[in-house]
Nucleic acid binder design. Structure first.
Length: 263
DNA sequence: AACAGGGGCAACCGCAGTTCT
DNA sequence: CAGAACTGCGGTTGCCCCTGT
């Protein structure tokens, strides 16, 4: 004979809601956290009267309801940081998210899977391959730097991109992670505005110089690697004419392939 | 105008690490 | 000290919306 409590527990489990959150549920969760604070998610779910698992409540709060959470419109600065940090740490989304104030690991993960992996697919190379990493470092990142420079009124143009790619690595032995750590990327220390990014364009220029990166990062190309020519390709008029609207069409797949085949 | 396919995003799942009892 | 419960993370899935045909 099953106890009343176990029956109740199984019934309760059966009544657990799944799927998209309703406005009413959001309000209940926000109100409860406003009064009682967050944490102890299973207890919270029960006390708030939400027919959700604690995990679901936590996820909803962290990824959506939290007041300082930012969604959409990932800026060039943020894209640059994601590319750089991912080249160092791989799929350590939560760690990467620590350096993008207001961004969640889930959003960064989605950005990587939808945007970055899409480009890798277009280029017919693996997103984790050295080839794609080189493309990121010597084409994508300089272009983002250029866009950041233009956006901040810092005298853009192709020169800045080329300069970024060719800047001596004066700070390359000072990982971005440590530099960012100095900037204390804690939520309370960072506002949601892009203008208060934890890294400046100048520091990014230094950080993203083509130097070896410890821990499986990108290596300085040696000899006649095609990536060296890719670096120079930033100055090509054809490259400058490529369309770069808001992170899409960052390059022409055909152009990159033809460049690659040349070397 | 209707339909199909793909992209983007929110949410779920399983696992590992940590904390509590 | 051991087991249970909780928390956090990364991978995956499913749904909605947009775009192209």
């Amino acid at each position: 004979m099953e106890s009343h409590s176990s029956v109740a527990a199984s019934e309760e489990e059966a009544e657990l809601r799944r799927g998209p959150w309703t406005t009413e549920e959001d309000i209940v969760l926000m109100n409860y956290i406003a009064v009682n604070g967050e944490g102890k998610w299973n207890y919270l779910a029960r006390c708030a009267g939400l027919r959700r698992t604690g995990k679901s409540c936590r996820l909803r709060w962290l990824n959506y309801l939290r007041p300082d959470v930012r969604r959409g419109n990932i800026t060039p600065e943020e894209q640059l940081l994601i590319l750089e940090l991912h080249s160092r740490w791989g799929n350590r989304w939560s760690k990467i998210a620590q350096y993008l104030p207001g961004r969640t690991d889930n959003e960064i993960k989605n950005y990587w899977r939808t945007r970055v992996q899409k480009h890798a697919k277009q280029l017919k190379c693996d997103v984790n391959s050295q080839q794609f990493k080189d493309i990121m470092r010597y084409l994508w990142m300089p272009r983002l730097l250029e866009r950041i420079g233009v956006a901040s009124g810092g005298g853009g143009g192709g020169d800045s991109a080329a300069a970024a790619a060719e800047t001596p690595a004066t700070c390359s032995d000072f990982p971005i992670s440590e530099r960012a750590a100095e900037a204390k990327p804690s939520p309370e220390n960072s506002s949601a505005a892009g203008s208060s990014s934890t890294t400046s364009v100048d520091s990014l220029s230094m950080q993203l110089s083509p130097q070896p990166v410890s821990g499986g990062g990108l290596m300085q190309p040696a000899g006649e690697l095609w990536t060296e020519s890719l670096m120079n390709a930033v100055d090509f008029p054809e490259f400058e004419q490529m369309v770069w609207p808001a992170g899409e069409n960052l390059w022409s797949v055909d152009d990159i392939w033809s460049m690659q085949q040349q070397f």
